[in-house]
Simulated assay, not measured.
Amino acid sequence: MDIVHEITRAHRELLDGERKVMTLTRSYDADVEDVWDACTDADRLKRWFLPVSGDLRLGGSYQFEGQAGGEILRCEPPRLLKVSWLYGEDPLFSEVEVRLSSEGGGTLLELRHTADVPPDMWSGYGPGAVGVGWDLTLLGLAMHLAGAPKVDESTFHLTEDGRRCIVTSSQAWGRAYTAAGGSPDQVATTVANTTAFYAPEEESS
C-alpha cells in the first residue's frame, strides 16, 4: 500500500466561521457494511484506532483510551453516526459526524468535525491541528480494511513514509485554509506549526 497516496485520495474543506467546520471526504475499496462495522465495532476499532469503552448505542456514552469521549447523538446503521467529541476537563463544543454512501463497488466516507476552537489555538495551528489527526486516523482505517498491520504511532513520524504523510496532510489542510480565506502569512504559520507538532525533528545526540 502506498500510504502517501492514501493521504492524497482525500478531499478537504473548511468553513472558517465563528464555529469551525472541517470536512474530510475519501473513498474506500470496501462495501458500506464493512466500513460501518470497522467504525462502530469495539473489537475492530482497537485494531486500527484505539480501545473504546462505554454504552455503545444511541443515547449512550463512549470513551476512547487516552483520547476523546462523548455521547452518541445519532446512529443510523450503516449510513450515519454522530457523536459529541470532547477532550479534557472543560471541553468546548465539538461534534463529529460520519456519513457513508455506496460509490461503485466501494464506499464514500465523509467525516465532518464541527467545533469551537480557542483563538490562540486557531491562529497557531489552523485546521491542521485536528485535520492531520483525522487524516492519519482514516489512513489507519484504510490499512485495516486492506489487511495491513497497524503502524506504531510512537515512531510513525520518524519513518520516511510517515513524515511524508504528515507533511502532505499538513500542506493539504493549508490549501483548504487558503480556499476558505486564510491569508498567506497565517496559512504558512499554521502549516509550519502543525507539521512541527506532528512530525518533530529527531533530536541529534
Rank of each mutant, 00 (worst) to 15 (best):
A188Q: 11
E95Q: 08
A188E: 05
V151I: 01
E33Y: 09
D185N: 00
E76F: 00
N193Y: 11
L111C: 04
C165V: 07
L56E: 06
A148R: 07
E13K: 00
I3K: 00
V32L: 00
W48T: 11
D37G: 00
G59K: 11
T23N: 10
S53G: 03
R44E: 07
G162K: 04
V4C: 10
G124W: 14
D55L: 03
T40I: 11
G59I: 03
R26M: 13
P184V: 01
D120I: 13
G124T: 15
G162F: 05
E65K: 05
T194N: 10
D90V: 08
E6A: 13
D43A: 12
Q186N: 10
L81T: 04
A196W: 14
G140K: 11
D152K: 02
K46T: 10
S169T: 12
M143D: 14
L136G: 04
K20F: 05
H157M: 10
W48D: 04
S61P: 14
E97F: 10
P91W: 07
L14K: 09
A172G: 15
N193P: 08
L80Q: 03
V117L: 15
H113S: 12
S53D: 08
L136N: 01
E33H: 03
T40E: 12
R26P: 01
G182Q: 03
Q67I: 06
S102P: 10
K20W: 13
E6W: 08
E33I: 12
L80E: 01
R19V: 15
L108M: 03
D152G: 10
W173D: 01
T23K: 15
W85C: 01
P51D: 03
T25M: 02
T25D: 05
L14Q: 13
G128H: 15
W48Q: 01
R175N: 15
P200Q: 06
G140L: 14
S61M: 02
G140W: 11
D152L: 03
K20E: 14
F156N: 03
A115F: 08
A179R: 10
P118S: 14
E18V: 15
C165D: 11
D135E: 04
L100G: 02
S205V: 12
R74S: 12
G162Q: 08
A10R: 14
L73Q: 06
L15P: 04
I166L: 06
D152I: 09
